[in-house]
Amino acid sequence: MNISINYFGMIAESTGKSSEKIETAEIRTVNDLRKELVNRYPNLSTYEFKIAIDANLVEDENEKLKPGALVALLPPFAGG
């Protein structure tokens, strides 16, 4: 499965990149993806972040990922 990922704020700083595409057969759910990313970037385990799919926040990380999903890792908001 092909997934595009965007990183923001302190998360982008931690991973050292603002976006990437990953291809994996292992990932089925949003939670699988979270685990995979923390595995790739161990520093992420020290940050709090939410996940958005196609610009909508994921409520339940057991949600299945669809091929081509646009994923975003969002650290705490700081607007205003």
Binding site: F8, G9, F77, A78, G79, G80
Partner: peptide, 9 residues
Amino acid sequence: IKAQVPVFG
């Protein structure tokens, strides 16, 4: 805005 909008500072 403060709670819901994905803005980072």
